[in-house]
Write a protein that binds this DNA or RNA. Structure first.
Length: 197
DNA sequence: AGAGCGATGGCCT
DNA sequence: GGCCATCGCTCTA
């Protein structure tokens, strides 16, 4: 299949991730997240992200390195997947540079490939309810604990270059208690696939 | 050793 | 809008 070949061959290079986190968060909009799992391939266009920065109270790395957040302090271009609320996984990409605990949370995708598999994994049919939230998209994409620390320049779980096809809206982040006034959430204007307005 | 709670989602009213 | 499932991480002692 044409799309599969196209998505398969072009993981973003490490240099893409080795930039300041806000730039990475913005540039990820329009890019394609791909997971080649045993069950099949799924892919979606990134339409919503959030940046989590050093010195930012909402960032998991805010109080230094721990067992959970240590991948955030490692080299850029790796996945940071964490478990929350006793049942959900969230997917981040590590950005910036080694020693700096920063990452970008991927909050929503526009489903592109493997929609039937996503529907099965989610137990939902509506295209707008498959990847419209950070924990929804990990479920739809089959991303879990085993993907923590995965190298995103590899061929199993990766991101392909793409460009934003709409202006980027900058707003405050969702679901956090501290740092809620910081303008670190980004989404593609007019997308019907974002988690919320 | 244990309490408190969370970068959420689904279902209810 | 509100409630709550569910559990690993973090902090306090």
């Amino acid at each position: 299949m044409m799309t599969e070949q196209k998505f398969a061959g072009c993981p973003l290079p490490r240099e893409f991730y080795a930039r300041d986190t806000v730039t990475v968060a913005r540039d990820l909009l329009g890019c394609i997240l791909v997971h080649r799992s045993r069950e099949g391939i799924t892919a979606g266009k990134i339409v919503e992200t959030e940046a989590y920065l050093q010195g930012d109270p909402a960032c998991h790395a805010a109080r230094g390195m721990t067992l959970r957040n240590r991948v955030m302090f490692g080299p850029p271009g790796f996945a940071y997947v964490y478990f929350t609320y006793g049942m959900h996984y969230c997917f981040n990409v590590v950005s910036a540079r080694e020693g700096v605990g920063e990452a970008v949370l991927v909050r929503a995708l526009k489903p592109l490939v493997g929609i039937e598999l996503m529907q099965r994994r989610r137990g939902r049919n509506s295209i707008h309810d498959l990847c419209s939230g950070p924990a929804k998209l990990t479920q739809a994409m089959g991303i879990g604990r085993e993907h923590n620390q995965v190298d995103l320049t590899g061929s199993r779980l990766f991101i392909c270059f793409g460009t934003a096809d709409a202006p980027i809206v900058t707003t405050t982040r969702i679901g956090i208690k501290e740092g809620k006034d910081l303008p670190l959430r980004f989404y593609l204007r007019g997308s019907r696939f974002i988690s919320r307005k």
